[in-house]
Amino acid sequence: MLKNESSERNYERKYEPDERYQELGTSARVWHVYNDEADKYDTDLVEGMSGSLDVLLIFAALFAGIITAFLSQTAQKLDVDTGGVTIALLNEIIALQRATTQNGVDVSSIPRASSTSTPSTLILWVNGLWFTSLNLSIASALLSVLAKQWFHQYSAFKPGSARERAFTRQFRFDGLEKWHVPLIVGLLPSILHASLGLFLLGLFIYLVDLRPSMAISVGILSISLGIVYLITILIPLVDVQCAYRTPLTDILSNILRYYCNQSVRVRHIYRLFEQLQDSLPGPSE
């Protein structure tokens, strides 16, 4: 295997030597070498990104289906509860009938049943959290599909000579880096993480109204998962060798480094200002 790899990288045998003064010509060896190395790099890049996007799409689809199943039960409570209104009206009718059969009972003292019903605050919170979670899940799936199309365009066929193919590839790669496509793809799982967090929060609120005893166990498990998630993100900020590094960790690291540099600069300026004050002559001088 190593012998085959070394033979593939022996470009002096693979490609004929360039003629004199044609070392940068349209079909020079350097362009073929660049294209071969770039193809290997791009293949690994596109396959790795596409693999992660495929997993993300599957998870987003399954998770959206789970949220939809829960919403199908709770979204009905946002509408007018016709059953509850009917029961309230029947109770009012029965109370009026009893009042008419009894002497000394004032009919006007019987409270009137409301013909409208409003959902409780907990139900509003639950549906709001779950609808937001569903939107985030769909957004991550949409962005994943768009990212796969971006990489498809990036790896599309490049016509022309060896030099033109090299220039086209470098132009596409520079655009990929300029518009932070790898960073966007790396942050897509964070959208699903936020969606999952909102879903668990909504599930906890829903169980508080339904079964408080079950809400305690779900709440403890959700908080434990949240703590573990935060630890895996924050540990690489302390230990550079930690393997729990993600694009979100890199962003937090850059932000932390920026503010640390700013604080060092402020302290340095303050120290220079103090030295300048000490060097100035006093009033008596």
Results as ranks from 00 to 15, higher is better:
Lys3Pro: 08
Glu8Tyr: 15
Arg9Ser: 09
Asn10Arg: 10
Tyr15Leu: 04
Pro17Trp: 02
Gln22Lys: 14
Glu23Lys: 06
Thr26Arg: 15
Thr26Pro: 11
Val30Asn: 03
Ala38Phe: 07
Thr43Phe: 13
Asp44Gly: 12
Met49Asp: 07
Met49Gln: 11
Asp54Thr: 10
Leu57His: 08
Phe59Val: 13
Ile66Tyr: 13
Ile67Leu: 12
Ala69Glu: 08
Leu71Tyr: 06
Ser72Ile: 10
Gln73Phe: 13
Thr74Cys: 02
Lys77Pro: 00
Gly83Trp: 01
Val85Gln: 05
Ala88Phe: 02
Ile94Asn: 12
Ala95Glu: 02
Gln97Ser: 13
Ala99Ser: 09
Ala99Glu: 00
Thr101Val: 10
Asn103Cys: 06
Gly104Tyr: 00
Gly104His: 03
Val105Glu: 07
Asp106Val: 09
Asp106Met: 09
Leu122His: 14
Leu122Asp: 15
Trp125Asn: 14
Val126Asp: 07
Gly128Asn: 10
Leu129Arg: 03
Leu129Met: 11
Leu129Asp: 04
Trp130Gly: 05
Trp130Tyr: 06
Ser133Asn: 00
Ser133Ile: 01
Ser140Leu: 01
Leu142Pro: 02
Ala147Tyr: 03
Tyr154Met: 07
Tyr154Trp: 09
Ser155Trp: 05
Arg163Thr: 01
Arg163Gly: 04
Phe167Asn: 09
Phe167Pro: 00
Phe167Leu: 15
Thr168Met: 08
Thr168Glu: 00
Phe173Pro: 00
Val181Thr: 07
Pro182Phe: 03
Leu183Met: 11
Gly186Gln: 06
Gly186Ser: 04
Leu187Lys: 01
Ile191Tyr: 04
Ser195Met: 04
Leu196Met: 13
Gly197His: 08
Phe199Val: 07
Phe199Thr: 14
Leu200Thr: 07
Leu200Phe: 09
Leu201Ile: 12
Asp209Asn: 13
Gly219Leu: 04
Ser222Leu: 03
Ile223Asp: 03
Ile223Pro: 00
Leu225Val: 12
Ile227Tyr: 08
Leu230Asn: 08
Ile233Gln: 12
Leu234Asp: 00
Ile235His: 01
Ile235Met: 10
Asp239Ala: 13
Val240Ala: 15
Gln241Lys: 15
Cys242His: 14
Ile251Ala: 12
Leu252Pro: 03
Leu256Lys: 14
Leu256His: 11
Arg257Ala: 14
Cys260Ala: 13
Asn261Thr: 08
Arg265Thr: 10
Phe273Lys: 11
Leu276Val: 04
